[in-house]
Design a protein around this nucleic acid. Structure first.
Lengths: 231, 231
DNA sequence: GCCGGATTATTGTATAGACAATATACGCAT
DNA sequence: ATGCGTATATTGTCTATACAATAATCCGGC
């Protein structure tokens, strides 16, 4: 017993995805769909507005509704909380703090691109006693002054922030790099091992909160992005 | 002159993001919001339904509307068309085919996880004469028989597929790896250079169309995922 | 106390109609 | 043809109302 507006939406959606309606094609106007499905205009409007919100069609007053160009490029990347993910695999998670210092942003890793006074932490994420990720993080003291009182023993700074500080924008840059000797030592791997590098920076309504660089050992860690089947 | 339902939506959204309404909190019922904003129930409903569609709140009949748990960190990953991106930087793009063969999936790179008879291609993506990515791709011949007639001279197999075959689901796995000697040679880099590896598989309503593994040299290539500021 | 049915609060869906906003198309004057 | 104002088609928003679906709650019977 799916709702009518839902059936209309799916109907048109499948016509688009199946190629019956190609990008640029014009959809029937609301009045005609209204007749086709024998319902009121509000119902048709709800269905097509949903498609528009999903970016599948573009609507323009007086002109009509058109199938959008294949968007294709925007996939959903699931960025997990490390502690949570490790525990879900039945392993024991631990964070070990290697360094903690209050300093000016200029002193920390330049790839973090943060400014002002920060709390700088360096540590490793450990699963079942084995380090699997190296983390260097800077937290803005102007944005989050109370972090100075935080203790990072059971929780990593990331988990602490997740619990205490909401954010509104985030950006993650993903690249590959060879570990430096210091990082290799902390992770217990050979120098120059290939690592996946994530640099994530988060803001709260424009104010920079934190920047973090995480290094994951070689191919033992994989990020997955999906489009479509949201399983 | 923003629409009223939009103003209501943003109003409540900011109350949630600003922490005024914490996860688990109950929103006023539609009837009360209707009085608060002096509008009809349909308008309130449209605003809150949008929030529900975005996953910010959960709604339950009889129970009410509740602020959802902090979002599973789903960010939008922008996966670009290589040819397009290179040209946008003002460089000359070229694809060079190194190998082309029709064979059984078992013969190609096992990381692609595809089955049946496939067209297997290996090549490099070149910007301004310099190779920057290595690509190994398998295209299912049962799903796309016409690919056998395609010529990959101006376009890479990926661009050809993008133009000719629509898809409905895709999955991209991202990891870091050290290049093998053969790949290193094709890219003109030293053995064991750290590379970003993308393995993307796409389906059309359940049928596997293609799988591709792209290797990008070291830190000269970065993927970016964003949440919030959709700039 | 516990179970099962009735009550009821809340969201979900749909209708018919009205007016607003906007971009296209048309027609007219130059 | 060119430019300009007007008509018009199409979507955007909103209202007031109605009934359906769902699930928490209450209440009676045992």
């Amino acid at each position: 017993m799916t709702a009518l507006h839902e059936r209309i939406r799916r109907d048109i959606e499948s016509r688009i995805l199946g190629g019956e309606l190609a990008p640029g094609d014009r959809l029937p106007i609301e009045h005609d769909l209204m007749a086709e499905y024998g319902c009121s205009r509000m119902t048709v409007n709800k269905a097509i507005s949903a498609l528009a919100a999903a970016g599948l069609v573009n609507r323009k007053r007086k002109a009509g509704t058109f199938v959008a160009a294949p968007k294709a490029h925007a996939m959903v990347l699931d960025i997990p909380d490390l502690a949570h993910e490790v525990q879900e695999r039945g392993q024991v998670y631990r964070y070990r703090l290697l360094h903690r210092e209050i300093c000016n942003a200029g002193k920390v890793d330049s790839s973090l691109e943060i400014e002002g006074d920060v709390l700088w932490t360096v540590g490793v994420h450990i699963a079942d006693g084995k380090p699997f990720a190296h983390e260097s993080r800077a937290v803005s003291l102007t944005a989050v002054p109370e972090i100075d009182d935080a203790v990072f023993d059971p929780d990593s700074p990331g988990t602490w922030l997740l619990k205490h500080v909401p954010w509104t924008e985030a950006e993650t840059a993903i690249s590959a790099t060879a570990v430096s000797d210091r990082e290799a030592h902390a992770l217990g791997v050979a120098d120059n091992t290939a690592c996946l590098s994530l640099v994530r920076r988060t803001w709260r309504s424009g104010e920079h909160i934190t920047a973090v660089r995480q290094l994951f050992i070689g191919d033992s860690y994989t990020l997955v992005a999906r489009f479509g089947a949201s399983a």
